[in-house]
């Protein structure tokens, strides 16, 4: 197991190097270049030149890259051009928000998706199957920002059940030691704050859950179907085992394998979806900040955030693979 983890970590190195070159090249390929990003409404060519000299943008490219890499290793990504604050601080501020949102969305997708997918598989070929599958496919085909707006219009504006924007009630004063607002309420002994944070989480999480939900329904259904056709299940049936036992013992266990993988891969999807959902709900997480950052050429932010996202993506998939190995001994052997 340790050797497996070590090998996976080694694989991270070429990915990170390649990505850092890509990111570095991307910033330099932007029209206008980085210097203008620093200057607001009243930029003059002289000011641009001056900034370029200050930033060392007039030095040779490889030198700039080596410096960039050296700082990146020390987690020094410079300061965000949007806020003038160190990128590392922006990460500490925004990653908890998006992680909280993504976990909530995944939780919704899994708890709703697995039972639905299982149900569809058991009723394979019936109208219920078709309805369940089609309905879950809607999740992938509705533009997520449109869904977010509709949810907000109905549940927040018309019905007034849930808040429209942000992560917490603006009028409330709560402490945020960890940055995970739901957790913070528990840590600081302020359950009202946790509840408040939870209500702010629901609508964006439901909107965000729509995409992984569809995938999880389809995957659960497909893998349960496959397993149902496999020999050991047929054998079990032939042996006259009770339906319920078969389900628990064989079908669901084996069906969980691909689903676990999907959940790992969904991280990227959730992050991408978060860009749109966070914008609609003014949810101050990673997604919104990065989307703005890309449009506004906030390249220190983009470089830092994408590197961190890529590392965590690879790490999450590594963990998924380990879990996969625990669930399925065959993988460990090969």
């Amino acid at each position: 197991m340790l050797r497996f983890v070590f090998r996976r970590l080694l694989q991270l190195i070429p990915i990170l190097l390649g990505l850092s070159i890509l990111l570095f090249a991307w910033v330099r390929a932007l029209p206008g270049g980085p210097a203008q990003a620093l200057l607001g409404e009243r930029a003059t060519p002289e000011a641009v030149e001056q900034i370029e000299a200050q930033l060392g943008l007039d030095r040779p490219l490889w030198e700039q890259y080596v410096q960039f890499l050296g700082r990146a290793v020390r987690l020094d990504f410079g300061a965000s051009l949007q806020t003038g604050q160190p990128v590392i601080e922006e990460m500490a501020r925004r990653f908890p928000a998006t992680i909280e949102l993504a976990i909530a969305a995944l939780l919704i997708a899994v708890t709703v998706g697995i039972p639905l997918g299982y149900l569809a598989a058991r009723r394979y070929g019936t109208w219920l199957d078709s309805v369940l599958v089609s309905a879950s496919l809607l999740g992938v085909t509705v533009p997520i920002f449109f869904l977010a707006y509709l949810l907000k219009l109905v549940f927040a504006v018309q019905l007034g059940w849930l808040p429209t924007a942000g992560r917490s009630d603006p009028r409330a004063r709560a402490e945020h030691p960890t940055g995970f607002y739901v957790l913070d309420g528990i840590v600081t002994g302020d359950p009202a704050a946790s509840w408040d944070a939870l209500t702010h989480l629901i609508l964006p999480a439901v909107a965000l859950a729509s995409i992984p939900l569809a995938v999880i329904v389809r995957m659960t259904r497909a893998s349960v179907l496959t397993v149902l056709h496999e020999d050991h299940v047929r054998t079990a049936e032939a042996k006259g085992l009770l339906a319920g036992t078969i389900v628990r013992h064989h079908v669901l266990r084996n069906a969980m394998l691909p689903v676990t993988t999907v959940i790992g891969l969904q991280m990227g999807v959730l992050l991408a979806g978060a860009v749109l959902t966070e914008t609609v709900f003014a949810f101050s997480g990673v997604g919104k900040f990065m989307a703005d950052g890309i449009v506004q050429r906030d390249f220190p932010t983009i470089q830092g955030f994408i590197l961190v996202i890529a590392v965590s993506y690879v790490l999450v998939n590594m963990i998924v693979d380990i879990v996969y190995g625990l669930l399925d001994p065959r993988v460990r052997v090969s």
């Binding site: 990505l19 990227g268 992050l271 991408a272 990065m290 989307a291 890309i294 994408i306 993506y313 690879v314």
Partner: peptide
Amino acid sequence: IMLSVPGLLFAIA
């Protein structure tokens, strides 16, 4: 490397 960047962010970039 390409897959390690979320698709939409990649497309925006």
